[in-house]
Design a protein around this nucleic acid. Structure first.
Lengths: 235, 235, 235, 235
DNA sequence: GATGAATGAGGATTCATTCAT
DNA sequence: CATGAATGAATCCTCATTCAT
């Protein structure tokens, strides 16, 4: 009604914008929800807040998502998507050494996934997995396993061509995965890990982890270093 | 006043046997709370549920803890402070090499902290930190920083005596911390990481991580391995 | 989530017809709250009861008032501020004698304030003041002091023009205020003061009080009547 | 147990004190309850607080009083007692004039009743009457009516002997009662009436009220002063 | 009798969800 | 479709009352 009587161009612009928005609503809601779920957790995020951040009313949220739980699931499903698939495809055509591939894979993953909001999903899942078992298995199938398979392929290639020493791949994959997951956690749990003194620069962190991963920290590395319970035990 | 007016026999039957065990209550409540907080998160855990699991009534919980939040803090204090302090003390009297110390430290930490219920708290914190800023800084001061300092001491010792090559300690510490945090996450987010096929054996995982940490994965490790953006980039 | 799972016809029947009358709600709630607070006191009045009397649900009450205490304050603000201000304004333009003004003021106050539900608030305050210090000072500033100032102005005028004998105004004001407060108390504590036999007619009561106030009860009044401990003491 | 092994005199003293106390308990509880009920109201007073102030445990309170309501009733009944009866008896043997009697009665009542904790009962009743109808009628019968009868007797005597002009006693009694009730209210509702600036001296207040009651405030009192709606009305 | 630990009904408040406009 | 007023189940917490010691 306010704009009803004037048919100046601005009105059309507004309507056009609203039209476009109509299409975009679910996406805006998902974005807002992602932010808030990551920041505050599922339970502590209020539906109204999500709506407000998306610029719509509470009612509209429930127009697009049956419930807060469904919204949560949609957020996860929407964001888990094909990043890993994409990395896998890239691997198929990659020409360099396995070492380069490790470097490339970790750096690229960070740029395309870890540094984006999507990474918040990983944190979300770890927090809420037990309250949403079905989501957890979805995540398992969509992210965890493909990620492990990709990692495994890279390591296998390095072993095959003599770049890497023989490794138990079931466990070695976590040499790559663990530091990246840890980075996500620190990035997405602002108060938990990052005091003022300790603040990670992601690129430097990744570089260092790659360095340690490939070369270890020992000055004179032993190719075979059997770990056993040391004779020097803690009291 | 509630039951005051009916003094029929059924009333007595309604009351569970009232045991008076003032000394034991707080501990039982803390145990119950730890279980539930770890399992479901802070917000999703109802006060009454905690009480029920401890075998007491709602009211009794609030007899010992001013609020649910205070209960949470008490759980944290009870379960995590001291562990790191203990490890630090152990370090002071340790005789072996820095490598042995790394091995020992990671294995001992796992046995004494990581494998226990307490470790669930670490996962909890990452989820709830933003909703409880003061708790987060408490955790920061009590756990994160002491842990980093201990790790740093060990690495420094190894560098000093030539066991380890020179390292940027600010980042190298995460070579030890990250895999352990990752292990906690997987252990305490049962559905998120551990499908039926992929199930970690913690000791084996730790051994492998130590192996990679000390020796890296390269067949012919380069003592200096500058990481740079590879010429072979992903598409 | 509550009713989400049952979508049987009975569900619709459970919902009372939902009327949307945003403008009207606060007023209706304030009226209901006034009634109940006056009748039962602040603490003994349940929020849900107020809502029910206003014809809305519990939740709606908290939509308009942040808390029960805020509701209480709103009731006070709505009902008592302004009355005294109004009387003060009336005084400014009053033409008659001071005596007439006393008469007029007491009668008008009764009609406009004392006889209305608002007066129940005055009684309320005396009961709940100690539990709501900030409310008490609000009341003090908004009602008590302006009331005293008005009373004092009237008496001063009468003294100045020789209608009244010289009086210690700090205390004389209560010659007017006390009987009116007493009237409020009796009117709003139905069981406490008004048995079947003894039932006050307010207008007659006020007339009588005015008569006694202006003329006293002595047959041959002494202009100066120093009160001292009488030689005839009670045993 | 702490004192079990020493049989020094101090132990006996403690026991002796406890013995004596046992008799006094209900009285101490009633005193504590009176204080707290007057100060905070019925609902806002916690049973435990009453017990604590009486120096006993929560359980003990319910040993002597079936419920908080019964405690309240006992407090009222205990304190309403024979003050008025006493004043009535004093009147029977009083020798002085009716004027002296008014003076005496008001001053004595203040000293023996108004200034004591018992007066808190009057405030209590006005606050809680509607929640405790039975108490209200008890109060009515024990306090209000005897008080009015006494007042009436005094006034009647003054009229009979020509000291007072003819009065409608049904209303004139409140010329004496109202200021006293008002005084009680102000004294027992600390925050409601007494700001820093306005603080009543009871004796001075009573003297002034007596002065006004007996003599009025007019400079030239008219024995007959018919109150009617003045031609000068407030706007 | 006295104690105070334990109980649980009750009440304030929140917030996901509904639905009249 | 969009809105936001209205709803009421759910949850934290209090405190009168009970009862084992």
């Amino acid at each position: 009604m306010p704009l009803a009587k004037l048919s100046c161009p601005i009105k059309k612009a507004l309507h056009a914008k609203r039209e476009r928005r109509k299409e975009a609503r679910p996406g805006e809601l998902l974005d807002a929800a992602l932010d808030l779920f990551v920041e505050k957790g599922f339970a502590a995020t209020r539906a109204e807040e999500v709506a407000a951040r998306a610029g719509v009313s509470k009612g509209t949220l429930f127009l697009y998502f049956q419930s807060k739980e469904e919204l949560f699931k949609a957020v996860v499903r929407e964001n888990i998507s094909g990043h890993i698939r994409e990395l896998n495809a890239a691997f198929d055509t990659f020409e360099g050494s396995a070492k380069d591939m490790v470097v490339q894979c970790m750096q690229t993953w960070w740029q395309r996934v870890g540094a984006t909001k999507s990474a918040g999903i990983d944190k979300l899942i770890t927090s809420e997995a037990s309250n949403f078992p079905e989501l957890a298995s979805f995540y398992q199938a969509e992210v965890i396993e493909p990620g492990q398979i990709l990692t495994r392929r890279i390591l296998q290639k390095g072993i095959d061509n003599g770049e890497f020493r023989p490794l138990d791949l079931d466990y070695a994959v976590f040499g790559i995965i663990a530091p990246m997951m840890f980075l996500i956690m620190t990035k997405n749990s602002p108060n938990a890990f990052c005091s003022d003194q300790i603040f990670l620069n992601p690129e430097k962190y990744i570089a260092m982890q790659i360095d340690m991963l490939l070369n270890g920290i020992s000055a004179i590395p032993a190719t075979s270093h059997p770990i056993k319970t040391s004779p020097h035990e803690f009291n």
